[in-house]
Design a protein around this nucleic acid. Sequence first.
DNA 1: TTGTATGCGTTATCAG
DNA 2: CTGATAACGCATACAA
Lengths: 359, 359
Amino acid sequence: MAPRKKNPAALTTNSPVSMADLARELGVSMTTISRALSNHHSIGPEMKARVLKLAKKYNYQPNRLAAALRKGKSQLLGIIVPYIEGRFFPSVVHGIETAASRAGYNVIICQSNEDAAQEQRNVEALLSAQVAGIMVSLARTTSTYQHFEKVRSRGLPLVFFDRSMGGEDVNAVVLNDHEGALISTRHLLSQGCRRVAHLAGPQHLSIYKNRYQGYLAALREAGLPLEEELVVFTDMAQAEGAAAMRRWLELPNPPDAVFSAGDYCALGALQEARRQGRRVPEDVAISGFSNEAFTLITEPTITTIDQRCEEMGQATVRLLLEQIEAGSTPFTPRQTVLQPELLVRGSSLRVSRPGPAEA
Amino acid sequence: MAPRKKNPAALTTNSPVSMADLARELGVSMTTISRALSNHHSIGPEMKARVLKLAKKYNYQPNRLAAALRKGKSQLLGIIVPYIEGRFFPSVVHGIETAASRAGYNVIICQSNEDAAQEQRNVEALLSAQVAGIMVSLARTTSTYQHFEKVRSRGLPLVFFDRSMGGEDVNAVVLNDHEGALISTRHLLSQGCRRVAHLAGPQHLSIYKNRYQGYLAALREAGLPLEEELVVFTDMAQAEGAAAMRRWLELPNPPDAVFSAGDYCALGALQEARRQGRRVPEDVAISGFSNEAFTLITEPTITTIDQRCEEMGQATVRLLLEQIEAGSTPFTPRQTVLQPELLVRGSSLRVSRPGPAEA
DNA sequence: TTGTATGCGTTATCAG
DNA sequence: CTGATAACGCATACAA
C-alpha cells in the first residue's frame, strides 16, 4: 500500500503526528518545532511552551529513525552473545540494558548460538540497523575476525566482553580468571588443606587455561609441588566432577581439597564425596567458580567465585559510550579487567572465617 | 560536525557505500540497483548479477533505517520484560529472539524493573524506534493501560506474554496455571497421598490464584475435603517453605504431601523435612512449580511443572507476526494457552512410574 | 529569535 | 525491462 496521505489540517486521527503537522497547526516553521523540542537555546520560552503543549496534545512521538538517518547515528546499541540462558549472559545483558537505558540508548540483542557464521550475520544485521556501537562476547567457534575488522574500519565503536579476541588493540572487559583461581586456591590452603586437587576445563579456552595457571601459581606460592594425579581435565560437566572425585577417593593418599574451574563440576564432586561417606569440608573441602544460583542451596553451600556479571555489563557500556563520545578523535583501545570476588561458604570453611563475610 | 562529503567516484574509502554510489559506478539508475538487490522480477539476470557482484566488492550494507523510514515499517520488534534474570524471562527472550531472527527481525529489549512508569517510557521508546510490533510481560505495579491503548490506536501489533492484562480483546500467550496445579496435585494423589498440603503464593497475582484453584479442583475431583490448616499463604520464598513445613510436621496429623506453587518454596520445605528426619518422598512427597535449574540437582530431585518458556517465546512471536502480516485487515485478538508439563522426579515418586518418563 | 532549503538512503510511482 | 523523481521525518547550514 502507498504511504498514508498527509494528515489534514484538523489533526483528528490517531496516526503518527510529525513535526510538519505541528508546524502547520501552530503557523510556524518546522525548524522552530525541531528546536523547541530539542531545547535549542535560540527558542523563546513562550514559543517553547506553546510547542510542547501542542506536542503533548497531539501525542507527538519523535521518529528516531528519521533523526538517526539525518544525523548518521542512531540511539541503538547492539549486543551479540552466544545465547541468552544460564546465569552468566542474562546477568550481563541485564547490566548492559540498565546502563544503556540510563544513557538514553536502546539495545538490540542477537544470539550467535556459538556459531561463527551466525555471529557474522549478526554483525551485518547490526551494521544495517545503523547501531551506534557493538558489544560482543565471541562464539566458541569464531576463529577469524574479518567481520569485526569491517566494524572497525567503519569507525564503529566495538567492545568485547568476557570472551574477547585478545591483544592490546581491542577494547575488552574481562574477568581476571587467573586471580580468581589464585585466591580460591589460596583460600583452600589457608584452611589447612595441603593436597589441593583441580578440576580443570578445556585448555583451548582461555578462561580455563587462566584458571589452571592461577591454581598453579597458588601452589607455587605455597611451595607445594604439582601432583599430576590431582589435576583432571574435564568438560566441566557435573558427571565428570563426580567421576573424578570417585577416582581421587580411591587413591592411597586422596586430596583434602578440590578447586573446580566450574560450579557444576564442583557440585558433582561434592555429591560424590558425600555419597562415599566423606564429610565436606572436614574430609575434603571444595570450591567452584561462577557463583551459579544453586551454590547457595546445596548442603553445604558451595564456596565459589563471583564473576561480577552486572559490573561487566556496566563496564562494557561505559567503555563503549566513551568511544561513541570520542567521535572521530582517535581512541586508544583499552582493556578493563574486573576483579573476581571469593564467596566463602560451607563447602570450604574449616577454620574460623578468614575473609570478609558474605550474604 | 556536518554530514560527511559524498564519496568521490573512486570508491576507495571504507565509509558506508550507498545505492547511489553503486549506481554511479555501474552507470545505471538507483532504481535498478534497488530492484536488483531486492530481487525484483523486472530486472534481468545479467544486470542483477553485475549489481550483486559490485555490491559484494564494495561491501555494500543496506541502510535499514532509510528503508524503514520510507516504508513506514522497520524490521525491529520490541520486547518489554520486568527484568532479565532468573530462569523464566531469559528463556522466553531466548525463544523470542530465535524465532524473530528466523523471520528476519531484530529485537530491541527493554526492562521495566517492575515499574509501571518505566514500562510506559519503554513503550514510548519503542514507538519512537518505529518497531513493527511489541511484546510485553507486564510489570507488577502496572494497573492502568493507556500506554497500551496508544499502541493499539496506532494499529501497532501488540502481544502480551505470561503476565497479561486479561480479557478477550487482547492478544496473549499464557501458561495454563490451573491445569499445572491440577495435574501436579493429581499426581501426588496418585502416589497414594491423602493429605496434600499447599504452599500458596500471593493471591492478588493471577498465576498463584490459578494454581490454588487448580489444587482445590484436584481435591474436589478426588472427593477430599479442603483442610484449612494444610494451606499456607507465603511469598514463595525458600525460608517460608521451611517454616510452613516445620509447623506442619508438628501437627498431630501432618500432611503426607506438599504441592508448592513455586520451586524455591518447595526446596525450603524439602530441606526442612529432611532436617526433621523425614524421608522424602516416603514420609512426605513434594512437588514444585517452574522447573528451576536447581530442581535437578537436589537430593532427591524435585518434581515440578515446566512452564514452556521456549515455546512461550515462539508462540508470542508467531502471534505477533500474524498480526504484522495481517497489515490493516482487521485482526481478531487471540489468546494462546500453553499446556504445562509435569516432570515427575524423586521427591514425589513413591509407586511405580505413573506417567511418561522424563530426562 | 525565526524561517528556507537541502539532504540523509531508500522505495514507490509513474513514465518511457 | 529501465529511469527520473518524489517522498518518508528530521536536523542543520545559511539567510533574514
